[in-house]
Each structure stands twice: as structure tokens, then as C-alpha cells.
Design a protein around this nucleic acid. Structure first.
Length: 583
DNA sequence: GTAGGGTTAG
């Protein structure tokens, strides 16, 4: 893979070590402001005689990764290897880091192999990157093992950055307490914790809603002489926003300013998003303006939060205004932005607008992801557009996006509701064969679908087989099954299951009672239905309006039953009584 | 000379 200099193209065969300029030149990297600049410079460097040293190439690759263009950095790295331009352990570490960012620790480790082959000894940063890559790929146990092996085999003595990387991995894997213990261990091996490591733990505690624990660590950190910074405060503001403790949010924000720390775009984005999620769009817009006034430019996250907020309120005109606004300000929408808009149009039943955006985003080079496909597939089925939904379901897989639980649930539900029971059954079997059947929801959908479309025997068989499949029915499953029993006039059994579900630890819900009461009314078992309604009310549930409608239809024959009258007085929705009186 | 840890959105 890595050619030696003998295979270099003729014009590249020069002495690399003497490539430092003799006169002080301006650093060409100073003129690199975007990816295009970087790629142009790389090209120029390739054609320069003599070819610049590995140092210059490494710095260029570093600049490219700092701009988050990991893919391009890898392309250039591979090009260097192909052309035989030497790379060293600095260059390799950058490349390893890039693979880690793509969640490809396997590729990263194979680069490590060639590292050894070329006689380089990896230093601390290389291992730190590998540890981070493993943690990023949900392989924190492997990351911790590598860390321990490095210490045990005395391959290197970890420093604060490596500890910080492990601590972050542990926190992200939900082992915050273990991470805190690691800080204590650090002190024992004479490697002092620093401000960043405290920030890492505080951020994760705040995310886990453990604000008080985070505050303890905050005091500890100050006690040790570390000043909190914008990261620290932003973490607290985020945690408090999640807990909706608005007064404390404002307090922390002010405390931050009083400490001379300026909020940055992350801080503002968290606030903008929190206001949007609360539906306070005016406050969110105010935040955007006040960040601009402070010279902080809103970015794609800021605009997307606002767009998402308006989409949630179905104010699509407002959402599109902000979409134009961001484009005017040269902030380019990404997949998240389009997903919000597509979701908004879907919920507003403006399918054409949603599909147009779906095509438009791709024409702009923005790739749809699983959320885009899930939103559209779900909506298309709900609107009865089965062929198009199926087309997108196939398309996503052809593009390498694997369906998730949401996708399968949407497809199964769509097939059932549109009376394609056979297709739903074959999808269920496929999921079972692939072992993707641990989610009870898919069975609930199938039981509902089969029993509503005249195949109650299948529904019953599937329900009875649930224990065999190791899946436990929940309230929803029981309710759907009881509904099926009522539809098939198995009233006695329906009542039995109302008891059975409770014995099985699933307390019937308001929906369960409504379903069974309606089932009995519709089966002309009014006395039984009323009994169930009484039980329901005793348990503190309220019949819904369609149950009430059925109940009111029975009123003349029920006469003066006082419990019934009480129930109506207390629980009937107002419009229901009025409309019934008028009819 | 150059490489490594922390913050935002479905």
C-alpha cells in the first residue's frame, strides 16, 4: 500500500528533507479558508519541485480535519501513500483519527498495523485516538481494555488527555460513577485531573439530569482552582433546560455573564431550541436576534431549531420564511433541516410539498437519512399510498440505509390498515427469521390487523404463541386482543382477559375499558356494557366520547338508573349532551 | 516543527 520513493513519478523524485524554504515565506496555510483552498494547495504541493516535506503535508491534513472534512483528508492521505510521498506517525495518527470519525475502528487498527510494519512506535496520541474510536463505535469495554493493557504492559504512561478520553467514553456508556472513580485513580498515579476532565463529567451528569451531582463536582473543581468556562456553563444550562427549570436557566446564564464568560453559539442554540420546544417562538426569535447583536452568527443548528419549532406548530409559512432567511444568510440547510420541513408538511397532510422537498434536497446534494425515509413511509401508508411507500422502503435499502424498528412498525401498520394482511404476515415472518422480533409492538399491530380483517384465528394463534417467542404482551396488546374478541362476539372470553391481563401485571387502561364497553354495546349486550362502565368509573377512568355516544343511545330503555345519570352528569363531554339533546 | 480529550438538533 505504501510505495517507496523509488516508485515516485519522475517530477516528484526529490530530496524531501531539504525542502524547507531558505527565505522566510508566508505560510501558505494562512490562505486556506475552506476545503477548496486546501485541495488546491495539496495539488500545488504535489507539483512543486522539490516536493514539500511530510511536515507540510501533515499540517495541511490537520487543517482539513479541523474543518471536519475527514473524508477528504483520508482521500489525500491515500493519495500520498499511492504516490509514495512519505508519511510518518503524525500523518498516520490523523488518518487513524479520520477512520475513527467514520466509526471504522477496524480500519484504524489496520493502519496501526502498517504503523508497526514501517518501524514506527506509536506514541500516546495515536493510542488516545484509538481509544476514542473504540468508544465512539460503542465499544467502550474494548477501549477500557486497551487503556488497561497500555498501563499493564507499560507501553506508555497515560496522561491527562488519555484519561479524559477514557472518562468521556465511560460517561457516554452510562458509567458516570466509574468515570468519577477514575478521576481519583488519576491522582494516585500522579496525573492531575484538569478543568476539561471535570467539564466532561459535569456535561454528562447534566445530560443524565443529575444536576445536583454536577454541582458537587462544580464545587470540587473550583476548590481545586479550576475556573469554569463556557463549556461548564453551557452544560448546566442544557441540563436545566431539559429539566425545564427556567428560573435556574436564567440564573445560570446571568452567573455566567457575571463571571466574565461569554455564551457562544452552542449556548445560544441550546436556549433557542429549548424555547422552540416550549412553543415560545417569540422568545426563540428574540434569542436569535440577541446572539446576532453580540456578533455570534446563527448557524444551521440555530435556524433548524426555529424551523422545527414552527413545523411542530404546523406554521409552515413561518417555517419556510426562516428557511429562506437562512439561505439568504448563506447558511445551508442540512438533512436535519429538511427532515423538520418534510415532517411538518406530512403532519399538515401536504404530501406533495413534502415529496417536492424530498426531491429538492437531493438535487442540492443533501442526503436523506433514515428519519427522512421513516417520516415519508409512515405518512404515505397513512394516506393509503401503499405503492409509493413500498417504493421508498425499497429505495432506502438500496441506498444502504437499514430500516429500524420505526420503519418496520410503520410498514407493518400501513400494510395492515390498508388491508394487505398477507404482505404484513410475510414481513412479520421475515423479521422473526432475522431475530428482529423482540419488540412487542409488531405483534400488537399484527394481532390488531388480522382480527380487524376477518382472520381472528390467526390473531388468536399469534397471541397465544407470544410466550413461545419470548415476547411479553403489554396493555396495548391485551387491549387489541380484547377488541378482536369483541369483534368476533367472544364476549365471555373478552371479560376473562380483562381479569387475566391484570393477573399478568398489565393494568387495564382507559382505552381497554372503552374498547370492551363499546364491544358489548355494539354486540347488544347493554347490561354488561353498563356494568363494565361502572367498574371503569370506580377505577377513576372516564369513558371517551364514542363510548358515551353508545351509552346515550341506550338511555331511553335504561330509564331512571341513577348511576347512569350520575355518570352522564359528571363525565359526558358538554358538546355530546347538547348534540344528543338536539338530535 | 507536525498527531490526541469536553458543548447544540429528529
Amino acid at each position: 500500500m505504501y510505495r517507496t520513493t523509488t516508485s515516485l513519478p519522475h517530477h516528484l523524485q526529490h530530496n524531501y528533507s531539504s525542502s524547507r524554504p531558505h527565505t522566510p515565506n508566508p505560510d501558505p496555510l494562512d490562505n486556506v479558508h475552506n476545503l477548496d483552498d486546501a485541495l488546491n494547495l495539496f495539488d500545488k504541493m504535489l507539483h512543486r519541485i522539490p516536493v514539500p516535506s511530510v511536515y507540510h503535508f501533515t499540517r495541511l491534513l490537520d487543517v482539513i480535519t479541523k474543518m471536519n472534512h475527514y473524508h477528504s483528508a483520508l482521500v489525500l492521505f491515500n493519495k500520498m501513500c499511492f504516490l509514495g510521498i512519505p508519511v510518518n506517525h503524525y500523518t498516520m495518527t490523523i488518518a487513524i483519527n479520520c477512520y475513527c470519525h467514520f466509526n471504522l475502528p477496524g480500519f484504524a487498527f489496520s493502519l496501526l498495523g502498517s504503523f508497526f510494519k514501517r518501524g514506527y512506535t506509536p506514541a500516546l496520541p495515536t493510542f488516545t485516538v484509538l481509544i476514542r474510536g473504540l468508544a465512539l463505535a460503542d465499544r467502550t469495554p474494548d477501549a477500557v481494555n486497551l487503556f488497561r493493557k497500555l498501563i499493564r504492559d507499560k507501553i506508555c504512561a497515560p496522561d491527562g488527555i488519555m484519561f479524559g478520553t477514557v472518562v468521556d467514553g465511560l460517561c457516554k456508556a452510562g458509567q458516570t460513577m466509574r468515570a468519577i472513580r477514575l478521576i481519583k485513580l488519576m491522582e494516585q498515579v500522579n496525573c492531575k485531573p484538569d478543568a476539561i476532565i471535570y467539564n466532561i463529567i459535569i456535561a454528562n451528569l447534566c445530560k443524565d439530569r443529575l444536576i445536583d451531582k454536577a454541582l458537587d463536582l462544580f464545587s470540587e473543581m473550583i476548590g481545586k482552582g479550576f475556573a469554569p468556562d463556557v463549556f461548564t456553563y453551557t452544560s448546566f444550562i442544557q441540563g436545566l433546560c431539559n429539566l425545564r427549570r427556567w428560573d435556574d436557566v436564567v440564573k445560570k446564564f446571568e452567573e455566567m455573564g457575571a463571571s466574565g464568560i461569554s455564551p457562544n453559539v452552542y449556548t445560544f442554540n441550546i436556549l433557542v431550541d429549548a424555547y422552540c420546544k416550549e412553543g415560545k417562538m417569540g422568545d426563540a426569535e428574540f434569542m436569535l436576534h440577541s446572539m446576532t447583536a453580540r456578533g455570534i452568527s446563527p448557524n444551521v443548528v440555530t435556524y433548524t431549531a426555529l424551523i422545527d419549532g414552527y413545523c411542530f406548530q404546523r406554521k409552515m409559512d413561518k417555517a419556510m420564511d426562516w428557511y429562506s432567511n437562512m439561505n439568504d444568510n448563506k447558511v445551508f440547510p442540512n438533512t436535519f433541516t429538511y427532515n423538520s420541513l418534510i415532517n411538518g408538511y406530512c403532519k399538515s397532510k401536504k404530501l406533495d410539498a413534502a415529496l417536492n422537498l424530498f426531491r429538492f434536497m437531493q438535487s442540492k446534494g443533501v442526503k436523506p437519512d433514515i428519519v427522512t425515509y421513516n417520516t415519508l413511509i409512515y405518512t404515505l401508508y397513512r394516506m393509503g399510498k401503499c405503492p409509493l411507500a413500498l417504493e421508498l422502503y425499497n429505495e432506502m435499502q438500496a441506498r444502504g440505509i437499514m430500516p429500524d424498528t420505526f420503519t418496520y412498525t410503520a410498514v407493518l401498520n400501513g400494510l395492515c390498515q390498508n388491508n394487505h394482511i398477507d404482505e404484513a404476515m410475510s414481513l412479520l415472518h421475515m423479521l422473526e427469521n432475522r431475530g428482529l422480533n423482540s419488540d412487542i409492538q409488531i405483534y400488537t399491530i399484527i394481532i390488531d390487523g388480522t382480527s380487524k380483517h376477518g382472520d381472528f384465528d390467526s390473531a388468536r394463534a399469534i397471541f397465544k404463541d407470544l410466550p413461545l417467542k419470548g415476547v411479553k404482551p403489554n396493555v396495548h396488546t391485551y387491549t387489541v386482543f380484547i377488541n378482536g374478541l369483541c369483534l368476533n362476539r367472544q364476549f365471555e372470553e373478552a371479560k376473562e382477559y380483562l381479569v387475566k391481563m391484570e393477573q399478568d401485571g398489565c393494568l387495564p387502561s382507559s382505552v381497554t375499558y372503552n374498547v370492551i364497553a363499546q364491544g358489548f354495546f355494539k354486540g347488544n349486550k347493554c347490561d354488561e356494557a353498563v356494568k363494565i362502565l361502572k367498574e371503569m368509573v370506580e377505577k377513576g377512568f372516564t369513558p371517551d366520547s364514542s363510548t358515551f355516544k353508545l351509552l346515550l343511545d341506550q338511555l331511553p330503555s335504561e330509564g331512571q338508573d341513577s348511576t347512569l345519570m350520575d355518570m352522564i352528569q359528571n363525565f359526558a363531554p358538554r358538546d355530546m349532551i347538547v348534540s344528543n339533546a338536539n338530535s
